[in-house]
Each structure stands twice: as structure tokens, then as C-alpha cells.
């Protein structure tokens, strides 16, 4: 193969005065920021939706179910485009202008990725709650807890621990999915990957480095959550030991 290997270029200065490896570091920073912020949004909203779908209220269930159906059945990149290009045109003009000119792009990206992932988390939380024996709710109610208190003190603490392995894989997915936010102007790792290819054409080196970077992120996330899982394991449950 007459490919010209060159590992030195990472330390060369690009036309903005930074070195190429610094582009990668900055991309890693944005990837991490977008992913973690989206994860927080997704966990909060996903938990609320998941709980709604297990309540006795038919309305709350319908809202939760509709949300999950809508957000799971439209591709992520299109959802991001809807938030970025379409929503600002549908709201009143002054708000639209504000969204387009003053709202930092990372907010749009986090909303898009967070709401998308929330639908998946809602599924996990729901199945976690439904996996609990009905008796736990009744026991809570018998103790004089309100419906909400049975969630707060009895069911959710158990449900989270049961679905933690599934949440781990969603948390790892969010790092991978964050690559798509390049399409709405986030200068994250994949954007920098494309940029460096254009500037240097050293496709193989940069692919190796960026792939390793994504590996590392996935691995760190996995280890972090494995640690959490270990600390929160429910003694005596098979489900609590799953996921490795």
C-alpha cells in the first residue's frame, strides 16, 4: 500500500494556531460535556416518564406511552434537525431569533440527545418498576404511604438497582450517539475527526486515534457504572448481580 504513514502531524500546528492533538483533546471535552449533560436530562425525564407509565392514572400512562412512541420512532439525526432548524421557525419570531442567535448550540444538542435518550430510559425504568412484586406497593400503602411515597421510598430505590445494567448500556450509548451532534454545530470529537481528515488526509492515523478515544470513553463509563452497581447491589437478588 503506498500509504504514507505519518504520526508526527498530530504535533504540527494547524491554521488556527493550535496543534492537531489539541483539536482532539478539545473534541473529547465537548463529547464528554454533551454526553454527560444529556445523560442527566435523560435520567431525570426518563425516570419521570417511566414512573408515569406505571401509575394507575390512565392519562399519565397515555402521555408517557405517546412520548416513548414518538421519540423512539424518529431517527436521532432528524430529531436534532427538528430542534435546530424547524422549532425556531415555528415559535414566535422574537423567540426564534433568540434561539438562533443567543442560545448556545450545546443547549439544542443536549435537549435533542437528552429527550431522545429519555424515551429509552423510560422503557428501562418502567420495566424495572413492573419487575417488582406488586406486594411492595401494597405494603407501602398499608404503611400509610401515599402513592408517591411508595415510589420514593419503596419502589424506585429497588427499580433503579434492578435496571442499572441496562442503564449502563444506555449511558455508553449516549457517548456514541453524541457523535451525531456534529450535525447541529457541536465541535465534538467526530467533528474534529472530519476536520483533521480534510486538513491532513492522514485517514488511517486519525481513525486509529479517534477510535481509541471512543473506546476509552466507553470503558471509563463502563467502569464507573460497574462501581456504582457493585455499591448498590441488592443482596439476595439474581438481577442485582447481572451485567458483569
Amino acid at each position: 500500500m503506498n500509504y504514507h504513514w505519518d504520526w508526527q502531524f498530530f504535533f504540527q500546528e494547524a491554521d488556527d494556531g493550535l496543534k492537531y492533538y489539541e483539536w482532539i483533546v478539545s473534541g473529547l471535552g465537548w463529547t464528554t460535556a454533551v454526553s454527560l449533560a444529556s445523560l442527566v436530562v435523560a435520567l431525570l425525564l426518563g425516570s419521570v416518564l417511566g414512573v408515569m407509565r406505571t401509575t394507575p392514572s390512565r392519562w399519565l400512562v397515555a402521555i408517557g406511552d405517546t412520548y416513548v412512541d414518538v421519540f423512539r420512532n424518529i431517527p436521532l439525526i432528524i430529531q436534532l434537525f427538528l430542534w435546530f432548524f424547524v422549532v425556531p421557525e415555528l415559535v414566535p419570531n422574537s423567540i426564534g431569533i433568540w434561539m438562533k442567535q443567543d442560545l448556545p448550540y450545546i443547549v439544542t444538542a443536549v435537549v435533542g440527545l437528552g429527550l431522545y435518550t429519555a424515551a429509552r430510559i423510560a422503557e428501562q425504568v418502567k420495566s424495572g418498576i413492573n419487575a417488582l412484586p406488586r406486594g411492595q406497593r401494597f405494603a407501602g400503602l398499608a404503611l400509610g404511604f401515599t402513592e408517591w411515597q411508595t415510589y420514593r421510598h419503596v419502589r424506585l430505590p429497588m427499580a433503579y438497582r434492578i435496571v442499572l445494567p441496562a442503564l449502563t448500556s444506555e449511558a455508553m450509548n449516549i457517548f456514541k450517539n453524541s457523535a451525531v451532534t456534529y450535525a447541529v454545530g457541536i465541535l465534538e470529537l467526530y467533528f474534529q475527526y472530519k476536520q483533521i481528515i480534510e486538513k491532513t488526509s492522514q485517514v488511517l492515523e486519525i481513525t486509529i486515534v479517534v477510535t481509541l478515544a471512543y473506546f476509552t470513553l466507553a470503558f471509563l463509563m463502563n467502569r464507573l457504572l460497574a462501581f456504582v452497581e457493585k455499591r448498590t447491589r441488592v443482596p439476595g437478588l439474581i438481577a442485582g448481580t447481572g451485567g458483569k
Partner: peptide, 10 residues
């Protein structure tokens, strides 16, 4: 472990 969009381009 790798983003699909990166694999597509690579």
C-alpha cells in the same frame, strides 16, 4: 464501542 457515524465515514 464506536459511533456508527464514524464507522460509516471511516
Amino acid at each position: 464501542s464506536v459511533p456508527l457515524v464514524q464507522v460509516i465515514l471511516a
